[in-house]
Design a binder for these strands. Structure first.
Lengths: 329, 329
DNA sequence: TTGTAAGCGTTATCAA
DNA sequence: TTGATAACGCTTACAA
């Protein structure tokens, strides 16, 4: 491995001169600088990241932490993050799993974006207390080293629920996320506000898990209880897909007997028959904003918590209900 | 930031004793060791990765490089890789984009898995020459520091093509990948072998790009030329999906007028109407094997190139052709 | 069993 | 404009 020491020897200068030349400092003459650069090139010199990180106390790397690599939500989110990070001179790495948490406290990365419930909030606060910079996408956390970029869950859940009501449905199932999930809790809050306001509707809550299996289990219950058309708000698309799968095995038809809306507008929903109604938001923007906030945090700029806006995507998975002649306004 | 120096001072021992204790060496007495450990705990000590990496000349991190984060193929592949890596004491990070290439030569990671055509083969050989360890998933490359874990593309393409022929189709479109793609070239080789063998079939090749847009463009051509039912082998599922999208806008029906098979068996195909016929392989196993081979390479164990086997997934996207009464055997 | 000290490859301060 | 030199935080001979 060739180091600046080797270059210095070959060029007949000191290592500090080499370092300056390599870093484009104006302290060395154009002449020596270009001579050193040429030698470095010739010797196939490549700097050592660990040494640089150790000395400079920064790696210029941002880490994103995901619960797993499977989620369909992530593609655009990560691309948005990468683009922003790269444009500001940072590299982005994606990590998953308990083992990888160490990257942050061990200072392998300069900051972290969290979309991963395997981090407890206490853990994150601990890192923040050690002055590590963090952007959370999946919870609320107040600390000067932590910034939030959250979905407008409440607006989304309100849009979805009101859409079902507007379409004349009077029996509405809500399939929730797993118990502790922030997104699920937020979305449920919005649903409950509507429940308090609108009284002529039968509400049935089913605990889900944000995974396909949760939708399948919910479907089983709904099928078993089926007496008349009903609407279902799955708090994410993946469960809606699981639910569809299971319904497809019966004589019930989505959009006719079961009226379904999801949340996330993942790619797959576009290919469902009928098209799944859902809540959309720009995943790319979400990622870009998260990276931007993190970099600001790192450079000590002041940051405000941010919010990602959502919109309703209509779809034939929600048909007209028996009571659509008395629309809710 | 608390370092072993601080611990040493507080414990009244030397830094080397602290280091030994922290690393569980049997060179220090149980007594001092536990005292040191307690102090470290109390001081919230966390080791510095850069320093350790610099000194030990290894990071215990494996990198995977992907062309982009969007691909639908990656979830299980990465999970398989992560699982194997973690079980062997390595962390896994996922990188994408030209900028991130430096991770390997700058020794941030101990080795790389490549599924990313933004790396040229020359570039990879250069890294290998610098003794960096690499596993390639998307090309053939011969070097003692490079190992291949490749799909059995030829077997897959043969299965797919023969399936179309068996079902009695006499006019077969092939939609290829982008010009330089290794997978595309390999798959085409298998197709061409069949072309040489089976003569009563009309073959039409369309250049694609392995993306949805390629399938859409191919569809346009096929629709325009349409006179009688035809079969199409899209060299990957994504193009098959794009093709379906476009066909859906016409009066032609998949499985009746257009008989379609893809390659990859991505998640989405299961939700298509009708089910897309395709070629399946275990993405999880692929990832696991890649990680395993990379770790062997790093530890200096001998490795052989590996192959991932594939199988045919039938689907109603391929109906019977007019000539199915004379099956090809 | 513990301590001393060298060194991993950089950056950066201070003198020359 | 350049050079000596001291860190950065850690591991690991070798000495005590």
């Amino acid at each position: 491995m060739v180091s600046i020491k080797d270059i210095a020897k070959k060029a007949g200068v000191s290592i500090s001169t080499v370092s300056y030349a390599l870093n484009g400092s104006s302290k060395v003459t154009e002449e020596t600088s270009s001579r050193i650069l040429a030698i470095a090139q010739e010797m196939n010199y490549i700097p050592n990241a660990a040494a640089r990180t150790l000395k400079k106390r920064e790696s210029k790397i941002l880490g994103v932490f995901l619960t797993d690599f499977k989620g369909d939500v992530y593609g655009d989110l990560l691309d948005g993050m990468k683009e922003t990070a790269n444009s500001q001179g940072y590299d982005l790495i994606v990590c998953s799993g308990k083992q990888s948490h160490r990257m942050l406290p061990e200072r392998m990365i300069d900051g972290a974006v969290i979309l991963d419930h395997t981090f407890t909030s206490e853990e994150l606060l601990e890192y923040a207390a050690r002055s590590h910079k963090i952007v959370v996408l999946d919870r609320e956390l107040k600390h000067k080293n932590i910034n939030q970029v959250l979905l407008d869950n409440k607006a989304g859940a309100t849009l979805a629920t009101e859409y079902l009501i507007e379409r004349g449905h009077k029996k509405i199932y809500i399939v929730t996320g797993p118990a502790g999930s922030f997104d699920s809790i937020q979305r449920m809050k919005a649903v409950k506000q509507i429940q308090d306001r609108v009284h002529d509707i039968e509400w049935i809550e089913i605990e889900g898990n944000f995974k396909k299996s949760g939708g399948e289990k919910a479907a089983d219950q709904i099928i078993q209880q089926y007496t008349e058309p009903a609407a279902v708000f799955c708090l994410n698309d993946e469960m809606a897909i699981g639910l569809c799968d299971r319904i497809a095995d019966t004589s019930l038809v989505i959009g006719e007997h079961i009226h379904l809306i999801g949340f996330d507008n993942i790619e797959l929903t576009r290919y469902m028959q009928p098209r799944l109604a859902t809540i959309d938001y720009s995943k790319r923007k979400w990622g870009a904003l998260a990276a931007e906030q993190l970099i600001k945090l790192i450079s000590g700029e002041p940051v405000e918590n941010e919010r990602i806006y959502v919109s309703l995507v209509k779809g034939d998975s929600v048909g007209k209900g028996a009571h659509s002649f008395t629309p809710y306004v």
